[in-house]
Design a protein around this nucleic acid. Sequence first.
DNA 1: GTCTATAACGAGATAGAC
DNA 2: GTCTATCTCGTTATAGAC
Lengths: 175, 175
Amino acid sequence: MRQSGYNGISYRHVADEVGISKATLHHYFPTKADLGLAVIERFRSEILKIMCDLHEKEHNPLTKLSKYLGVYTLSLSENKLCLCGMLAAEHATLSEQMQTAVTDFFGNHIDWLEIVLREGLMSGRLQFEGNPRRHAKMILATMQGGLLVAKAQGSTENLESLTEHLLSMYRAPHR
Amino acid sequence: MRQSGYNGISYRHVADEVGISKATLHHYFPTKADLGLAVIERFRSEILKIMCDLHEKEHNPLTKLSKYLGVYTLSLSENKLCLCGMLAAEHATLSEQMQTAVTDFFGNHIDWLEIVLREGLMSGRLQFEGNPRRHAKMILATMQGGLLVAKAQGSTENLESLTEHLLSMYRAPHR
DNA sequence: GTCTATAACGAGATAGAC
DNA sequence: GTCTATCTCGTTATAGAC
C-alpha cells in the first residue's frame, strides 16, 4: 500500500507477498476496507510510537523536530511513501472508517508538532513568529507534499534539501 | 481522476460520465495509460495557461504568487485535487510516460515559482533569504501537501489559512 | 486456521456490424 | 466514428473440505 496505494493493491498481491492464500486473508480481513483500516491503524501506531519515543528520549526540541523530519527521508530511501499522504489522494474511494483514520493520523502529527514548537519557543531552541499550530500544519503539509514531489522527481536529495531548509527556518541562532 | 485517482476510475466510469460507450472511448484511447497520459497533458496545459496568463496580465510578483496559491483553494472548493499530486501517490502504478509527464508538471511549477520569486526579490515586493529555487520547491511542496491534508481534514479553511501563512512569509513590508 | 474451488462481478480490451 | 457483443483476465468474496 505504501508503494502502490490502496486501489493499487489486491488480495492476490498481499496473499502472495505474505505467503498465504487469498481465502486465509479474507478470514482475518473479510472486506478490503477492513484490511485497509487495519493497515492504517498499524501504520498510525508505528508513527505514534516514534513520536512518543522522541518525547521521552529527546529533550532538545530542535533535535525532536530534526528527527521527525528525518523519518520522511528514511521512508523515501526505502521506496515507501507516507501511507496517509497517499490515502488522502485516494480519499473519495475510501470507506468512512478509513477516511476517519486518515484524518486522525494527520491530527496526531499536528498535535505533536505543535507541542514541539511550543517547547522550542519556550526553551529558546526554536524561533518563529505567530501561531504554533499554524506552523505545525505548515510543516506537515510541506513534508507530505515534499515526499510526493520528491518521489515524482525521483530525488531523495530534493527531500533532504527541503528538510534542511525547513529546519533552518526554525532553528534559533546559537546563544 | 481528480476525485478518485487513476486507479480509482475505469473505462466504464468515464464512458458513462461522457455519455459514450466503452468501445468508443477505446477508439480514441486504446489503453488506459493512453487515456491517463492525455488527461495529464490536458491538465498540465490548463495550468500552464494559467501561469502564462499571470505572467502577461499581472506585474506585481506578490499578486502573481497570491493568485497562483489561490488556484489550490479554488480546486478544493470544487472537490477536486491536483491531478499530479494524486498521481505522485500512485506513481508506482503509472506507465513510464505518465510518470515523466508528472515529473515535468512539477518542473513547470518550480520553474514558474522561481521566476516569480526572483522578480519579487528584484522589485522589492517579496522578501526572503536564500536560494529562490529552494523556496520555489518548498512552496510547491507545501501547497501540494496542504491540499491533500485539507482534503482529508475536510476543511477548505485550513488551506486558506495555510495560503495566507505562506504569503505572509514572503510579503515584503510596505515601503 | 488454512486450504482449493468457485461464484459473481467488473476490469481492460477487441471484433465486427452499421 | 459509434455501437453491441464478447473475450479474457483479475477482482472481491464465499463455500466447504481438511
